[in-house]
Amino acid sequence: MDATIAALLTQDGLTNGSIYCLLALALVLVFAVTRVIFVPQGEFVAFSALTLAAFEQNKLPGTVWLLLALAAVAAFADVLSRWREPKRMLRSIAGTSLPSALAALLVWGVASAQMAFSIQVLTTIAAVTAMGPAVYRLAFQPIANATVLTLLIVSVAVHFVLTGLGLLFFGAEGVRTTAFTSASFTLGSVSISGQSLLVYAFTIFLVIAMAVFFKFTLFGKALRATAANRTGARLVGISPNFAGSLSITLSAAIGAVSGLLIGPIATIYYDSGFLIGLKGFVGAIVGGLASYPIAAGGAIFVGLVESFSSFWASAYKEVIVFTLIIPVLLWRSLTTTHHEEE
């Protein structure tokens, strides 16, 4: 292996690592607020790319049906659980079902009018983000204070549902979307595409933004507090349901933007989310599901290991990646102190 190949592999590893990193950040965000290990995060990424691809092929994205289904079921759930208090019922519907329904309408409008690329991009982000409140309302809100294990199982079940719907609405084949920029830069012997640089930039921006938001702003701290103490959060005026809904909506938005950024560099399938999500999860866990910078580092590490092992022994790539994780986990586990739950 010469220096050129090493440089190319490093660049490839950084790009993949950044993709995993975007997932890892969203996972840490959701966990920090809700204690949910949010397995379906990868689906947001996939749905975003698939939606834009459908726009580009002048097809009506399956997202419309997905959003309408979510809106209808969420509204039904609200009516069922809150019909005695019409005011709260309407407020809840306005907060969860309405965004999905409006987004569905928007997607339908943009698709039938065949609008400009930039509008398609913005619509895609809006559509995927609008799924957040409904997913939280339907799956997690009713059991927000259950154990981490129960929440995880529900999370996996939601992943199954979304993947199933993805296959139904988008089909089994993959898509590549148009790049935002065709620029490319040369660094020594390595050429880096403008699109990859966008991915790096967005990743770095998110790491800093999230770390700052949760560490230094009062609102961020309050959001984090809801995970530890739901009653306490309510006392200081933050509704845990609002915090949970907001965190999943934010992560849906991150997923949407990630999907658009990754779409041009990698083929995205309805089930792409699982494996990249799993590797993002590795990063998130290495960060103890708490630290954004360490999670980012973990995700980049996975990307690099993967890139180099796919060069050396591609058949054993996953074996190498997942075996190397174990000592890292052991080291992280032994160097972080656990406070026994009292």
């Binding site: 796919s310 060069f311 790539k317 996953e318």
Partner: peptide, 20 residues
């Protein structure tokens, strides 16, 4: 002889080795 996974985002490593 190189292998990759169906949903892999990138096959740069394998391709570099093939081309080499």
């Amino acid at each position: 002889e190189e292998r990759y996974n169906r949903t892999d985002a990138s096959t740069t490593g394998q391709v570099l080795k093939l081309v080499a």
